[in-house]
């Protein structure tokens, strides 16, 4: 059962990502990417890592994508003529993908309660201990990287000489 679900979700993830790359309209691309993130979250849940699944939805599909959306809105590409409601054809594929994910998540959630014999899920405590004890240095390096990403963006974003 889990194997079938995994393959279905994997196909959805790959299709979602491919569509996100090939889609010309940035907002549509983001919607496809969110689809792909959601099915990825379901895969993480399937791998007994509910915490990662949660992070995937909250941080990636939620926060990061909203940020992307804001940036695109601010850098408005100026195609207001195309801002009308998209046709049925553009809705069709995301809708199918969304339905597949929803069904998979539903089946998974139903199965998870009735069959707890699958490999035990990683708790928040275990996750935190591994992350901050074993890979504490890695966390510090990443935090420095993020800081300098901001520094670099601020510096390079200054107005250049003509």
């Amino acid at each position: 059962m889990e194997t079938y679900l995994f393959y279905i979700l994997a196909v959805v993830t790959v299709i979602g990502t491919i569509l996100a790359i090939t889609e010309k309209h940035p907002v549509h691309a983001i919607v496809h990417l969110v689809t792909s993130f959601f099915s990825l979250a379901a895969i993480f849940f399937l791998l007994a890592a509910p915490l990662i699944a949660m992070f995937e939805v909250i941080i990636y599909a939620g926060a990061v994508m909203v940020l992307f959306m804001f940036v695109i809105m601010m850098l408005d590409p100026g195609r207001t003529d195309q801002a009308g409601r998209p046709g049925l054809r553009q809705w069709l594929l995301p809708a199918i993908l969304g339905v597949i994910i929803l069904v998979s998540i539903g089946v998974l959630a139903a199965g998870y309660v009735t069959a707890p014999h699958t490999s035990s899920a990683i708790t928040v405590r275990e996750f935190a201990v591994t992350l901050f004890r074993k890979y504490g240095v890695a966390i510090e390096i990443i935090s420095m990287q993020l800081l300098f990403a901001v520094v670099g963006a601020l510096y390079l974003g200054r107005r250049r000489a003509p």
Binding site: Y135, A138, I142, F148, G152, L156
Partner: peptide, 22 residues
């Protein structure tokens, strides 16, 4: 992991440094 992050931190610095002459 640390090896990779170290390499990436270094590359990150260079991305900024090569373009630093505004």
């Amino acid at each position: 992991l640390t090896l990779f992050l170290g390499l990436e931190a270094m590359s990150f610095g260079f991305y900024i440094l090569v373009a630093i002459d505004l």
